[in-house]
Computed example of a mutant assay.
Amino acid sequence: MAEIQEKADSGKGGKKRAKKMSTHLDMTPMVDLAFLLLTFFMLTTSFSKPQTMEIRTPIDENKPENDTPIKASNALTILLGEEDKVYYYFGLGNPDENPEVEVTDFSNNGIRQVLLSQRVKDNPKMVVMIKPTEASRYKNMVDIFDEMKITDTKKFALVDITEQDKQLLANR
């Protein structure tokens, strides 16, 4: 609260002077109110919850009967390269097929448009195989998983890069 303190009259004779008054503000109630409001808003605010992506793993990777054969017409292979470049081709990468390797990036007009293309979306059996190279960064793998989520791609797998894929990148 604010209080006004008056100085006592010095008792000197003569002319009457106006009394000098000084003010003193007690800041304690305002600080208490500030901490109450801060506590209230901290406790009533809902914090953002972390979003997780469900990853399904095979039961036993060593059993050959768990491997599902994929036709070349139902495969899209994405190779994650250095400097945030994304290479892709349709098929399994057999040298006999001579796949045409295209280069793109992670922008809206990049790999997202490939995943949203009619060739991919019209084929319900399409499987996207993601193959990171040794020069790619972890961020690129997270970005491609985000693109799979954004484009609502149901079938995709993280696969080791093969020598054929390395050869395709070298020939590009």
Score class of each variant (00 low, 15 high):
A2P: 01
I4D: 00
I4W: 10
E6A: 14
E6S: 12
K7Y: 12
A8N: 10
D9Y: 11
S10P: 15
S10W: 12
G11N: 08
K12R: 10
G14Q: 07
G14T: 04
K15D: 12
A18V: 10
K20D: 08
S22E: 13
D26F: 06
T28H: 08
M30F: 15
V31M: 14
V31Y: 14
V31H: 11
T39M: 12
F40A: 09
F40R: 07
F41Q: 09
M42A: 14
T44P: 02
S46Y: 10
S48P: 14
S48K: 13
S48Q: 13
T52W: 11
M53T: 15
E54R: 07
E54K: 10
I59G: 04
E61F: 13
E65K: 06
E65H: 09
E65A: 09
N66K: 05
D67W: 08
D67G: 03
S73F: 04
S73T: 12
A75F: 00
A75H: 00
T77F: 02
I78N: 03
L79W: 02
L79R: 01
L80G: 01
E82S: 13
D84Y: 08
Y87C: 00
G91D: 02
G93V: 07
G93R: 04
N94E: 11
N94D: 14
D96F: 03
D96R: 07
E97M: 11
N98K: 15
E102L: 05
D105M: 05
S107H: 07
I111G: 08
I111R: 05
I111E: 06
Q113N: 14
L116A: 08
R119Q: 09
R119W: 06
K125Y: 13
K125G: 03
K125E: 15
M126H: 07
V128S: 06
E134V: 05
E134P: 01
E134G: 07
A135S: 13
S136K: 12
R137Y: 04
V142L: 14
V142A: 15
V142P: 03
D143P: 01
D143C: 05
D143Y: 07
F145H: 04
F145M: 14
F145Y: 07
E147Q: 15
I150C: 01
I150Y: 06
T151V: 02
D152S: 05
D152T: 01
T153G: 00
K154Q: 13
F156Y: 11
A157K: 08
L158F: 11
L158R: 04
D160M: 05
D160V: 02
I161H: 04
Q164R: 13
D165F: 02
K166S: 06
K166R: 08
Q167C: 01
Q167R: 09
L168G: 02
L169I: 01
L169A: 01
R172S: 06
